[in-house]
Design a protein around this nucleic acid. Sequence first.
DNA 1: TGGCTCATGTAATCTGTTACATGATTCT
DNA 2: AGAATCATGTAACAGATTACATGAGCCA
Lengths: 189, 189
Amino acid sequence: MAIEKRMDVVILGLLAHESLSGYEIKKRMDTTLQLFWRASFGSIYPTLKKLSVEDMVTKLETKENGRKKDIYTITIKGQEHLKRWLEEESNKDEIRYETLLKLFFGSEIGEQGTLKHINQFEDKIKKELPFIKQSISILSNLKKDEDAHKYYLLTAMFGKKVYEAYLDWCKETKRLLMEDNHTNKKENR
Amino acid sequence: MAIEKRMDVVILGLLAHESLSGYEIKKRMDTTLQLFWRASFGSIYPTLKKLSVEDMVTKLETKENGRKKDIYTITIKGQEHLKRWLEEESNKDEIRYETLLKLFFGSEIGEQGTLKHINQFEDKIKKELPFIKQSISILSNLKKDEDAHKYYLLTAMFGKKVYEAYLDWCKETKRLLMEDNHTNKKENR
DNA sequence: TGGCTCATGTAATCTGTTACATGATTCT
DNA sequence: AGAATCATGTAACAGATTACATGAGCCA
């Protein structure tokens, strides 16, 4: 495995804040954690079952207006497990940008193809950045209420910084490619 | 699988530039591509064999001063395969920072534990940044010689920008955590 | 009535890592 | 002589995705 997603601790981390169902956990992954951690149902439900067997969580079958739902709550043992992991040093940071890989091999498709990738990347980032900024303003107000929000804010700020660096790089890179292009044209005269 | 490493196209991309052995490919992964793409022998050799069967590459058993070595060369078919992938839009960009995940759950271990992670992260980045800068200065001089170097330079510049953004964020985040700490102390009096 | 979201789950499959095995050459 | 690097390879294993299956309630 490239880098594990440590489904056990991600789920425990979410449950440490509030009890949730598998479906709700998935929603968190698609929204709050979306920036740096995603997962599918095919890994969430089995992990929940595993955690249940290991007494890391307890399952409560509820019914909210006729609709049934399995709510999971973290146990002391689960909290300890989470804390142990949280206190370990991480050395598993990794970025994997397919865009970057394509750029690396850019000479195979030339300037035009490369520019297309950069523009696509730029568009995606520009579209996502407002959502991050919105999260930041919401979390800035909320952070006094609950300690956890302060930490959510830090990760959102990370996203903002990094995304802005991306945009910066896009601009600079495009200029660099254009310049070279211009120089080459002159030389070809 | 979270996100595929597309061993086929990475290897073809490297071979498009120069013929290499499996061992040398691994070295490229550990140095040049290290920033955003890594792989183990356990995936390189089987992929090489697969590509060979599919006529994407040809294998030449050589002997360099007594030491034998299997050099792989890309074929026309391989080049076409690579180009097809290069021209597709990528939508598989993903960062997975375990550090960030630990920060997200920071309220579970408190300020001190969180600061430790930030410092460890900062140290790692500070240690790696000089290497990126060095690559940039080398590639800046080389880029006139060979077209490919220009594109390598772009990815190195990406690394620099992002790493600098990380350091910026570390500084800001530490200040923010300290400030809050100070405020709380006053309130508790 | 049909489509969407809520809600849970599993089997097949894929992909890549880890760990091991083997052996030659070069450096100290 | 022994350690490190060069060099190739494979089997066991793990971890997660995809795709599918199922069913209930809500909205238009």
